Amino acid sequence: MLMLSTTQLPLFPLAPTLCNDTAEPALLLMACSGSKLDRDARAIDLYRGVMYQSYRAHLRTDAAPSVLILSARHGFLHPDTEIAPYDERMTRQRADEMMADLSSYLRPRAWPTRVGSVMLAGGAEYRRVMRAALARRYGPTLPVLQESYGGIGMQRSQLGAFLAGLKPAFRDQIGQHANGTPIFRAYGRIVAGDVATLRYRAAPALPPRQARVLSVFNGPSGPTADVEVEDLVRGRTRICPRWVSVADLHTSTKEPA
């Protein structure tokens, strides 16, 4: 294992330490909308307001945030929670009621354990409850926080920019290394089980080769994949384990930029 590390790590370009919004998934808190389906549905499907239209239009599969919805009736909801249509608004009085009994509306299990950047998308009373919930859930040191403001057109633009600007994040922890470093199933477009083309940026003379992804983790030089690669060893083709930079893996047939 020591030999593997010393021969591989020089192939990693130096990278800055990951910031929260890269290493951890982003969190989007969305206000419910007055426009709804006329039947029971998952919360993320039930709401049909323009902010939800913008969310669906800008959502990216390689960098999707964790989402919680603040319902004026139910409190915080996981997007997959099935609910019936209702008619209730987040007035100042309703926001005060929620904040006075926040634990009844928080639903701690719906919140991610760790988050990077956070966006609050909704009107002023919704955002007031959201800020209180964030402080209750994550303590006084809040993550990087953005809030929507202005007219609805501006808020839609802000939500779209937030979603478009998200960086990939690690998803679905499946274990950990002996030193405690978490191991994940996916990072951005790279998913365990994928077969990708490996091209070392720091060693362009090496020929490209196929690599099967086993897992991903945050290595000393950034997002790293544990892969199996076909190598020629003493004239014979062998399957060899490697730790490689995620940036050196290409899942499409296009040449990297």
Results as ranks from 00 to 15, higher is better:
residue 189 R to C: 09
residue 195 V to A: 15
residue 197 T to C: 10
residue 201 R to C: 01
residue 245 S to K: 11
residue 176 Q to E: 14
residue 211 A to I: 04
residue 178 A to G: 02
residue 230 E to R: 04
residue 192 A to I: 06
residue 246 V to E: 00
residue 176 Q to V: 05
residue 246 V to K: 03
residue 190 I to T: 06
residue 213 V to L: 01
residue 243 W to M: 15
residue 182 P to L: 11
residue 236 R to P: 02
residue 176 Q to S: 13
residue 243 W to K: 14
residue 246 V to Y: 01
residue 198 L to Y: 07
residue 234 R to L: 11
residue 210 Q to R: 15
residue 230 E to Y: 03
residue 237 T to D: 11
residue 222 G to D: 08
residue 223 P to L: 09
residue 239 I to R: 10
residue 198 L to G: 08
residue 207 P to M: 01
residue 218 N to I: 00
residue 190 I to Y: 01
residue 213 V to C: 01
residue 238 R to C: 05
residue 222 G to S: 09
residue 234 R to A: 12
residue 214 L to D: 12
residue 246 V to F: 00
residue 199 R to P: 13
residue 232 L to I: 02
residue 206 L to Y: 00
residue 182 P to Y: 05
residue 233 V to R: 08
residue 215 S to R: 03
residue 187 Y to K: 04
residue 211 A to H: 06
residue 196 A to F: 04
residue 194 D to K: 15
residue 203 A to C: 12
residue 216 V to M: 00
residue 237 T to W: 11
residue 243 W to E: 02
residue 187 Y to V: 00
residue 184 F to P: 03
residue 180 G to F: 09
residue 197 T to F: 05
residue 182 P to Q: 13
residue 245 S to L: 02
residue 207 P to W: 00
residue 225 A to T: 06
residue 206 L to M: 14
residue 231 D to E: 15
residue 198 L to S: 05
residue 175 G to H: 02
residue 186 A to T: 06
residue 195 V to N: 15
residue 203 A to G: 12
residue 210 Q to A: 05
residue 244 V to W: 05
residue 175 G to I: 10
residue 206 L to Q: 12
residue 211 A to V: 03
residue 178 A to S: 10
residue 235 G to D: 04
residue 194 D to Q: 10
residue 218 N to H: 11
